[in-house]
Design a protein around this nucleic acid. Sequence first.
DNA 1: CATATTGCGTTTTCATCGAGAGCATATAAG
DNA 2: CTTATATGCTCTCGATGAAAACGCAATATG
Lengths: 148, 148
Amino acid sequence: MLSMKTQYAFKALMYMAQQEKQRPILIAEIADQKTIPLKFLENILLQLKKAGILNSKKGKGGGYLFAKNPAEVKLATVMRLIDGPISLLPCVSLHFYTKCKNCDENFCGLNKVMLQVRDASLAILENKTVSDIAGTQPLTELAGIKVE
Amino acid sequence: MLSMKTQYAFKALMYMAQQEKQRPILIAEIADQKTIPLKFLENILLQLKKAGILNSKKGKGGGYLFAKNPAEVKLATVMRLIDGPISLLPCVSLHFYTKCKNCDENFCGLNKVMLQVRDASLAILENKTVSDIAGTQPLTELAGIKVE
DNA sequence: CATATTGCGTTTTCATCGAGAGCATATAAG
DNA sequence: CTTATATGCTCTCGATGAAAACGCAATATG
């Protein structure tokens, strides 16, 4: 299961992407609307900012903004950022691979099955983006600049 | 990711299914061959027994046996038994469903995507069995009794 | 400067994971 | 019936991580 942290991240990103006008959005507003603990959400948004997904502005009129077009933020990226591996076993992970002891992967039937599961999951999670789950059209501009 | 407990369970089941002759297998033998902490494995096998997957015999010549044909033990069953939900969100779980607060599932894009992921995963995990990952032919007899 | 807002390290609480100890119980062999 | 062999069961323990709160620093606005 996804951690609450990742679930909160998705809810926050959805909320932000669903806004009519792109404008700095307060942490407190998101926390309030989506029932997310304020200080916890603070950490989450900061982490998304450090990963280059969001931008922030301090002081009056500040808040959080998208740094990337939400149509380019893959669900898999967010999940890996916060929860780590998407795979069910370390020995089938693309981004967090570690060998399992006492097991030759070439002859491990479990490895083969979990590879299939990973591929099936990634086929979806690498192709769906924040704007898909927000149910919005891709943005046509970002911070006032037109994007393709 | 699967917990160590589930990973150990799969390794133990694979080892048991790979034996030439079906015979009572000692916990200690499995622990030794697969490098699993003895007392931890004891708990795991007991749990599999209580779920009706394994049988055990005490005393000399005792050990663990399959109660079901390994070809009938689905990976999904073992995973749910030990780790709980396979789904990534509680609101898309078949066996452990709980509603998520502040979210109408009919209009939640995240819900829809995670449903897809669940279905893709279960299509594999509900159809692969212990004998698939053990790489063995299905047993032709169980406890001396012929099975189909 | 006053105020609004994010940045960030620390701490707390709690549950769960992974593991081990010790004793109880059942069974087979002699 | 006794002994050795195995599993059954309960309790405990430490480490880890999840979830969340606290407090203050940094920064931007006007």
